[in-house]
Write a protein that binds this DNA or RNA. Structure first.
Ligand SMILES: [Mn+2]
Ligand SMILES: [Mn+2]
Ligand SMILES: [Mn+2]
Ligand SMILES: [Mn+2]
Lengths: 217, 217
DNA sequence: GGCATGATTTCGGCATGCCGAAAAAACTGC
DNA sequence: GCAGTTTTTTCGGCATGCCGAAATCATGCC
């Protein structure tokens, strides 16, 4: 049971706890994977039988150590591929995800490591997500969600969620990229949006954006 | 109907007529693809319904123009990947086939062309097989099968079949590689093997090898 | 404690690719 | 031309992943 489907499921489960550590429910998984709830229930049962996840009926889904190993491996593959596409093939950071989603299952370990080596064994991908090492080691940078940062907080952007390519383009236009320095000016009451100073000027960002950007702590 | 299975089938059909132009039978396809005859019969029916092949029951299988286009595209992808693995990732020529067999289905057109461009748009792969151009143009070098070459014939190796990795290693050890100059010394009666002079000395090659090597005409 | 609501699971079904066994057709040698 | 062999096709079946509809469970509210 290490099909490409299984690889995507454990990756989605891992992903959910990577920045906020709450266990993931089947319906959340279904949403992220774009599948029906019933499909996820069935697959989770198979993953549990294969020893990749823990799951009691009607409960949340959690990775076993073996499932986590597979997930971390898959995350490494995904992020190495994304980095390679940007660094070596002229992709923009909002164009890499779909291609990586497929390639991550197709490359041999040997080829993936050769590509990683040719990139100098990068430690983060184009969105700032940490790339696990080949031995499974993961380093999580200390970071604060922009939405949680108090007025006056100032810090470099260390991660931007790659969920929404359109948002990535919006941010690029606004001059907000990895390593850009941001200052939180304040929260606009009732609008839910924040005022932020970037190098290029002041920007209003809505709650979706504020939950997609992490600043150095 | 352009699944990875369909891509492999049309490629196998194309492959059969690439160097000897006889139409391919279902059982030959089954052998090449490592599948049961019944499986091939069924898939051929589906390919015919999709307009990729012509097939009358109990007859041979031939590509339609559309099937040929898909096959040529797939051959390009396979050979570009093999070339890339050898040129950029330190693979030996006997190690590339299986990885290419998978990757050829996973790369986007954009990425494949970016890789091809980074290699200088190569015209032949590590075994000497011609790489079709991106527009579908195919150039076939004039070549004679070693098995068909008369005693005294002398010419450069322009192609070595990549069917059998062990044979490729044997040939590499014997100093027979792409562009090596060979002279046919003669056929050993009753043994079916040929005597051939290479740079490194004289070699006896059996019929399998003699049918795997093409010399410049 | 009972009940409405939403999440989860079960169930029947579908698509794709594959197989072996059996039936049908096509060759082959005499 | 015909019997035996080989090839091809048909048939029933299996595995993987997916779906929608219906049943079941958990929960929170009164
Ligand atoms: Mn991604
Ligand atoms: Mn994927
Ligand atoms: Mn090959
Ligand atoms: Mn293939």
């Amino acid at each position: 049971m290490r099909s490409t489907a299984a690889e995507d499921y454990v990756k989605a489960i891992y992903h959910h706890t990577e920045w906020q550590p709450e266990p993931v429910t089947p319906s959340q998984l279904a949403t992220r994977l774009g599948l029906a709830n019933s499909t996820v229930t069935e697959m989770v049962k198979k993953l549990a039988a294969a020893g990749l996840v823990h799951h009691r009926p009607y409960g949340a889904v959690e990775l076993t150590p073996e499932g986590r190993r597979l997930a971390v491996r898959q995350v490494r593959r995904h992020r190495v591929v994304e980095t390679w596409l940007v660094e070596r093939h002229g992709y923009e950071w909002d164009e890499v995800h779909d291609e990586a989603e497929i390639l991550e299952h197709a490359l041999s370990d040997r080829l993936l490591e050769s590509i990683a080596a040719s990139l100098g064994d990068p430690e983060r991908d184009p969105h700032g997500d940490p790339i696990p090492a080949a031995d499974g080691t993961v380093r999580r940078p200390d970071a604060v969600l922009l939405a949680d940062a108090p007025a006056g907080h100032e810090g470099a952007v260390v991660r931007i969620s790659d969920e929404d390519p359109a948002m990535l383009r919006f941010l690029a236009d606004a001059g907000i990229a990895l390593d850009a320095r941001l200052t939180v000016l304040g929260v606009k009451p009732y609008s839910g949006s924040m005022q932020v100073r970037a190098l290029r000027g002041t920007v209003d960002v809505g709650p979706d954006v504020a939950r997609a950007i992490w600043l150095a702590a």
